[in-house]
């Protein structure tokens, strides 16, 4: 059973580290980016078959924030990159507007439960055997 990787875009080092650890423990291969710019760079560099199954995206980031990253992705010509599901991961209070505008996005409100993280990611990446057996 093949597992798709997860791209985590988060400027806060601690959260990034923790999320990556949590996903690794669950068996997901992960890639990390500190802002939108780096995330985009990664997506263009990685071979097509290694594109992540979903992107965990923080909104408030330096260089290129989450909103800008989404805009870029929507303008993307490469369909496979464009179609990668995005999971918003934010501590912002006023996300309701954004959710209304883009109901197709999954949202993880910080601080979130570990279970929530796993169930969202599970939707887009294959269920790892490890968890199933556990």
């Amino acid at each position: 059973m093949q597992m798709k990787s997860v791209l985590v875009v988060e400027d806060d080092q601690d959260i990034l580290e923790n999320v990556v650890i949590a996903l690794n423990i669950a068996g997901y291969p992960t890639h990390a980016a500190e802002n939108g710019k780096l995330a985009l760079r990664f997506l263009y560099q990685v071979p097509e078959q290694d594109l992540p199954g979903c992107i965990l995206l923080d909104l408030m980031m330096p260089e290129m924030n989450g909103f800008e990253f989404i805009e870029h992705l929507q303008m993307e010509k490469i369909f496979k990159i464009k179609k990668i599901p995005i999971i918003i991961m934010s501590a912002k209070d006023n996300l309701s507007y954004f959710i209304k505008e883009k109901p197709e996005y999954d949202v993880l409100k910080k601080p979130f439960e570990l279970e929530q993280l796993y169930s969202v990611v599970k939707k887009y990446c294959l269920i790892p055997e490890k968890i199933q057996h556990a």
Binding site: E17, I21, A22, I25, A91, F112, E113, L114, L117
Partner: peptide, 17 residues
């Protein structure tokens, strides 16, 4: 609230792991 939630997120993930 955003700033307070950031370290809390880390703490929560660590603790739950």
């Amino acid at each position: 609230s955003h700033e307070l939630k950031t370290p809390l997120t880390s703490l929560k993930i660590q603790n739950q792991l």
